[in-house]
Amino acid sequence: MKKRLAFLPALAAAAAAIALLSLLPFPRHDVADLRPIETLTVSYEKGLVRLSGSDCLGLGNTVAEALEDLKRSTDGHVFLSTATQVILVGLGQELLPLLVKAEALRPAASVAAMARAPSDPAAAGRYLSTHRSGLTVQQVAAAMAQGTAVALPLLTETEGGYRLAGYVPG
């Protein structure tokens, strides 16, 4: 029986060693340290990529730099896996392929474009969460792979609300 159980400490030691040596293929972040972003706003102004959401802001010359800055400048760990809406503002629409390639966003996140930055990004996010744009990051990635163009649904801020045009029924 002892012989049969000898593998248990060995397995435990192997698992502990892997964990302690940080060889795990996934990072360790306690849930309390997470800063989840639900609506990510992407814009491009004066040569700077600007990523913002949930009081977090990242600036950089490229999408990668902006993502890095977003992670570094935030108190806690920025968690983009909860981002269910991505709003591309103005020239930020051109950054969509780079964002998709960065693989920082969840595939099911819906994508919409805006001509100008929303006055209340949280309200825009809430609107998008109930009126799905019909275009997801995954669909954009598929279109990129196929070499086809995608039409971005356009979110417009109206007096006291929002309106979604170019909606693609999902």
């Binding site: 593998f7 248990l8 397995l11 435990a12 192997a14 698992a15 502990a16 892997i18 964990a19 302690l20 795990l24 293929p25 996934f26 360790r28």
Partner: peptide
């Protein structure tokens, strides 16, 4: 200690 990896190892054991 090791997330789902650790859980899987322990469950396998």
């Amino acid at each position: 200690a090791a997330g789902l990896f650790g859980l899987s190892v322990a469950f396998l054991a």
